[in-house]
């Protein structure tokens, strides 16, 4: 089977998320972008499936800062082809991203499309479900344990409380990956740098779609709800207070 993996680049949530001056958006220039964690799992699952069953893995990303690095990293991990999708505002929302990927996928042969199940900026919905609906093919979200058997795909969908359901589907299908069968592999930086010199990315230019997104009124930080009382003092003071609190609330055993 041939697998396509459209990946999203998202702000690194470990860093401070700066807002622009009028509070209408993130200050994108001040942020560091990296591959969405779930997309990394989708890529890993795609590579595992290729290693087990053959076929190919094509990775796509919308052009923006860090897109080249993410795509070369995917090649270093074992992807066969990397495509940079150009012609789109780099700070676009997920719905526009889905339209752009759909247009780009017209030039890509695939049977199964794996995406990360969600991303931290999915205000307009998740890429996989949007993309499947635009492509008019079935989708399943929160997927793990994908396997290929002849011409069919078998998979698990995760529900709350560890309940699973098993499904079967003939391609084409879009699967929103919750977690790969093993933690995403690591690509040595030296290998990525080498590929950046020797290999090249394919580019597909798409026309900017004219969908309408819900208007953003403002972006703001949550005001502390009840908010935590922050414990003061040295590490020992903090530990002492935590021990006292925990033992008091736990009650006698």
């Amino acid at each position: 089977m041939n697998i396509a993996v459209p990946i999203k680049l998202v702000p690194d949530l470990v860093e401070e998320l700066e807002l622009n001056d009028d509070g209408s958006d993130l200050d994108h220039d001040a942020l560091t972008y990296k591959i969405n964690e779930f997309c990394d799992h989708a890529l890993e699952e795609a590579l595992q499936l290729k290693e087990a069953h053959g076929g190919s893995v094509t990775v796509l990303a919308l052009d923006r800062d860090e897109a080249d690095k993410a795509l070369f990293t995917a090649l270093a991990k074992g992807a066969d082809r990397a495509i940079k999708v150009t012609g789109i505002d780099e700070n676009t929302g997920t719905l526009t991203a889905a339209h752009a990927f759909r247009a780009a996928l017209a030039g890509v042969e695939f049977d199964v499309l794996l995406t990360g199940v969600q991303a931290p900026d999915d205000r307009e919905g998740q890429l996989g479900v949007l993309l499947a609906s635009l492509l008019e093919i079935p989708h399943v979200s929160a997927v793990s344990e994908v396997s290929f058997d002849g011409g069919t795909v078998t998979l698990h969908k995760e529900f709350a409380g560890g309940v699973l359901a098993r499904y079967q589907v003939a391609p084409k299908v879009v699967l929103g990956i919750q977690s790969a069968r093993q933690a995403p592999r690591y690509a040595p930086v030296s290998r990525v740098r080498q590929l950046m010199k020797e290999a090249s990315l394919d580019e597909i230019e798409v026309e900017s779609p004219t969908n309408t997104s819900p208007e953003v009124r403002r972006v703001f930080r949550p005001t502390a709800g009840r908010g935590a009382e922050m414990l003061a003092g040295t590490t020992e003071d903090v530990a002492a207070r935590i021990a006292e609190l925990v033992l008091a609330h736990r009650g006698a055993r």
């Binding site: 949530l13 998320l17 205000r123 819900p214 009124r217 972006v219």
Partner: peptide, 13 residues
């Protein structure tokens, strides 16, 4: 609630 709960975005439709 977006960005892992770090930001809130108000939208209108």
């Amino acid at each position: 609630q977006l960005y892992g709960g770090k930001l809130l975005v108000e939208s209108a439709v």
